[in-house]
Design a protein around this nucleic acid. Structure first.
Length: 569
RNA sequence: GCGCCCGUGGUGAAAGGGAUAUCACGCAGGCCUCCGGAGCCUGAAGUCGGGGUUCGAAUCCCUGCGGGCGCACCA
């Protein structure tokens, strides 16, 4: 598709006095295939040429009627658009050859060569269980990580663990006051969580507890041995639990730099802020007034001397830039923290860091229950582990029913079960809130990963059964693909690179996810109308090439969403 | 009180200011002697209300309504 756009834009550019790149930006895909395959809208020229768009389209058509394209065969004006129709044979061969030669690198580019992109994602809070709420950051962040890597960037995944803050004061108080060793050993994360919930329940009757918690957190910040011992222990126990989930999801991070990692840099940050003269003391606390910038004030240090979240985030941002000199720095964090990031970026700007513009908050809506918001404090939470396991279990049952002879049911169940949960999150616009619903989470029909995976497995099945193997590219390959289903499928396959770019540019894996649904749908239409194995030899060869290319596109796309594409299921 | 986000068929969603608003679930019908029916085909049903900007608005602006989130000692 890029090549077609290049060709068309080079042709049009001199005739409309625009740069080819500007023409490429204007080009659209028509809503209806019979209109054409690529459209040049003439609206923007109307003002310059002082003519109505349909007339411009008509004139361009007259100018081009004797031109011949490599990848297109005719240009037809339709109202204010000049529509180009691809030359099916040449276009198919071009697309299929590119997929053929690129293989599992089809859609990958070297755009970001030598550039670092840091991606802050997942970032659970220690001592709280890993709930379904955390899946969003984890899965969206990981997909962006994979997508940027595919575009040639050197991606750096950072798990910004919430391993510092007043909640540790709370935990220490709770554990010291009414906790016990044996329960902690029995089921660490859940027990710590129980303590946390109990603390919040009790604090309503005994407000003193809050003071006590703040006291212990301050001790922690001052390096108190006892406090540190508790902290270390709680942290490690939580980490062990998170590892299980990351293993299951196949996620690794370059760094587990939690908030605590930046402790030794906090004094420096505060000094810097003071030197810049943007902070002031207020009621014993240190704060930055952002009123002139239309934002609420930011507090860097409490009156008791303890630091806050944003102080550590400032340190982290600076550290990341100094360490990685990033081309982009992404924060995949819930939309409820939008204000926090506006403040963070504003302060960085005030500090004079010109790289602030390279930082971006990638927000997403929250997951809620039907009954309302999930509250960790109130103890209403569904464990992600439980969701994943139930999904795998459900997939296993369906496989047992539909494909009882399958050899490796376990890995297929994992691929399908985990894929369902991941896709459920990735396929919708991240900014919208999600209502968690067990039925929906475990539904494998319709626009789901299973639909895409199933299409992939079917293709694999046909390829296995074929006596012919597609193993060489020859000069006539793909030239017999002429039916509507075949051409449509080829055109769809040609879009993968565009979709990957768009996903990266907008930080929206959902663009890629929805595209894969289209690919699967077009494949299924083809499949129902065009026999592969029963075709005449040459046609069979071309159709095998087509489905093999389709398989490649599905596999490549799913991989960037962190979803497996099993050969059988 | 102030600020930000979201309102699309019964339900869940898609649509980088553009052509006849696209899918899925569910519903009503149809399709396996055929490469895997977790599939395919046909049908009914929709842009929250009111203003504006524009040649053109689901999309941008204002306003009302509904829902969500946030606003100095949590993260």
């Amino acid at each position: 598709m890029q090549k077609l756009k290049d060709e068309v834009s080079r042709l049009l550019a001199p005739r409309v006095s625009l740069e080819p790149a500007e023409v490429i930006n204007l080009l659209e895909i028509p809503p209806e295939p019979n209109y054409g395959d690529l459209a040049f809208p003439c609206f923007s020229l109307a003002k310059i040429k002082k003519k109505a768009p349909p007339i411009i389209a008509e004139e361009l058509y007259e100018e081009l009627r004797n031109e011949e394209g490599l990848l297109w065969e005719k240009a037809v004006p339709r109202g204010p658009y000049l529509n180009f129709f691809i030359a099916p044979e040449a276009f198919s061969r071009e697309v299929l050859q590119e997929i053929w030669t690129s293989g599992d690198k089809y859609g990958h580019y070297n755009l970001g060569k030598g550039q670092n992109v840091t991606i802050d994602y997942s970032s659970p809070n220690i001592a709280k269980p890993f709930g379904v709420g955390h899946i969003r950051s984890t899965v969206i962040g990981h997909s962006l990580y994979l997508i940027y890597r595919a575009l040639g960037y050197n991606t750096i995944g950072i798990n910004h663990l919430g391993d510092w803050g007043t909640q540790f004061g709370k935990l220490i108080v709770a554990y010291k006051s009414w906790g016990n060793e044996s329960d902690l050993k029995e089921d660490p994360v859940n027990y710590l969580y129980k303590l946390y919930v109990q603390f919040h329940k009790l604090v309503e009757e005994k407000p003193d507890l809050d003071d006590e918690a703040r006291y212990w957190f301050r001790k922690l910040e001052n390096g108190d041995k006892e406090a540190l011992d508790y902290w270390n222990r709680f942290r490690q126990l939580s980490m062990d639990n998170y590892e299980l989930i990351y293993d299951l999801l196949g996620i690794e991070f370059e760094y587990y730099h939690g908030e605590s990692h930046y402790n030794q840099m906090l004094d420096e940050v505060i000094e810097l802020v003071q030197k810049k003269g943007i902070a002031r003391e207020s009621e014993g606390a240190l704060m930055i007034d952002l009123e002139p910038h239309g934002l609420p004030p930011v507090m860097l240090r409490k009156k008791d001397g303890a630091t806050l979240y944003i102080t550590r985030d400032l340190a982290a941002a600076i550290y990341r830039y100094e360490t990685f000199k990033f081309a982009r720095s992404l924060y995949v964090v819930g939309a409820e923290q939008t204000l926090h990031f506006q403040q963070l970026f504003k302060v960085l700007e005030l500090l004079g860091f010109e790289w602030t513009s390279k930082c971006a908050h990638v927000p997403f809506g929250l997951i809620r229950f039907k009954e309302g918001r999930m509250s960790t404090r109130e103890g209403k939470i569904i464990l992600l582990e439980e969701v994943l396991n139930r999904s795998i279990e459900m997939a296993r049952e369906i496989i047992e029913e539909k494909n009882p002879d399958l050899a490796d049911k376990e890995s297929a169940a994992r691929a399908v079960g985990l894929g369902a949960v991941r896709f459920g999150d990735l396929s919708n616009d991240r900014i919208k809130n999600i209502e968690f619903d067990w039925e929906k989470a475990l539904d494998f029909s319709g626009e789901t990963a299973a639909y895409i995976q199933y299409s992939h497995a079917r293709i694999c099945s046909i390829l296995r059964k074929s006596d012919k193997k597609v193993n060489v590219w020859d000069e006539s390959a793909g030239s017999l693909l002429v039916t509507e289903e075949e051409i449509t499928l080829v055109k769809t396959l040609a879009l993968l690179p565009d979709k990957i770019f768009a996903s990266a540019e907008n930080y929206r894996p959902s663009i890629l996810a929805r595209y894969l649904i289209d690919v699967a749908r077009e494949f299924n239409r083809f499949y129902h109308n065009c026999p592969v194995l029963d075709s005449e030899d040459n046609l069979k060869k071309d159709r095998l090439l087509l489905i093999s290319s389709t398989r490649q596109v599905i596999a490549n796309g799913l991989a960037l969403l962190g979803i497996e594409a099993p050969d059988k299921m």
